[in-house]
Simulated scan of single mutants.
Amino acid sequence: MIDRFAGRIGRFIFPAGLALALAGCGSSGSSSTGEPSTTQKLGNILMFQSATPPAPNQLPQDDEVNFICPQVIVADGGAAIRAQSGPDSGSLRSQVSINTVARECTPVGKDGAFTLKVGVEGRILIGPAGSPGNYGAALVTQVMRNNQVIARRSARVGGAIPGGQTGADFSHVEGNISVPAGSGEVEIIVGLSPGGGEPARRRRR
């Protein structure tokens, strides 16, 4: 499921504003208390390095750049990683899953090159066969053009689940990804992997 938030902020024009693509059942918009949602906070962190955006009159203004930032795609088979001790559901030790993704593109010149940040929020859970401890998986971020990988990053995500709890949230921002100018559609693909291998090439839009 992918939600799109249309809009223009400063010198960036995105097909989805800050384009928060939701993998699974994330929430969008503000909460009933008026506080920003999880997706809004992640987008604000990516763009403004703060969960709270600046006032409109503090945003940069540059109407000369009309730039389309590619959407983020969660790879099929890469949305969740499970560790099990057996084939049945009661043997599940832990699960690491992606809940929300977002990105920010910064054009470099006017030839189509840009730098990229990709943010991911997710959750780790203990299953019936699990116990408190540290759990995680490799998060692989790939940028592709014409089915060729032009940038690839891998990072360990997850965290510790203390005694008395069954789950914990995590977040990760991969920044300073350089995307050179070139012809062809650019795709940003993220996925979880048990040991840092490439996420599945078949993709879910």
Rank of each mutant, 00 (worst) to 15 (best):
R123F: 13
R203V: 08
G191Y: 12
Q61L: 13
E35K: 14
L22H: 10
R156W: 04
I188S: 01
G130H: 13
P132E: 08
A155Y: 04
V190D: 10
G167A: 11
S183K: 11
G167C: 02
Q165M: 10
P60F: 03
G182N: 11
G167D: 04
T33D: 15
G119V: 05
A151L: 02
I68V: 15
D3R: 11
V72W: 01
G7F: 07
I68D: 12
R4T: 14
Q95D: 09
G34W: 05
G127H: 06
P87A: 01
N134H: 14
T33M: 14
G197A: 04
I161V: 07
I124T: 10
V120P: 04
F5S: 09
A51Q: 13
P87F: 07
S193F: 07
R11H: 13
A6Y: 12
N57P: 04
S28P: 12
R152C: 04
G127D: 11
G43S: 10
G17S: 15
P56Q: 05
G164E: 00
V149I: 13
G167L: 06
G26F: 00
V149G: 09
L125N: 14
I177R: 00
G7T: 06
A113P: 00
G112M: 03
I161L: 05
L192M: 14
S31H: 15
G197H: 05
A155M: 02
R205Q: 10
A129H: 04
H172P: 05
P53R: 03
C105K: 00
C25K: 14
I13E: 15
D169S: 14
E187V: 09
R202H: 07
E35C: 10
V65G: 12
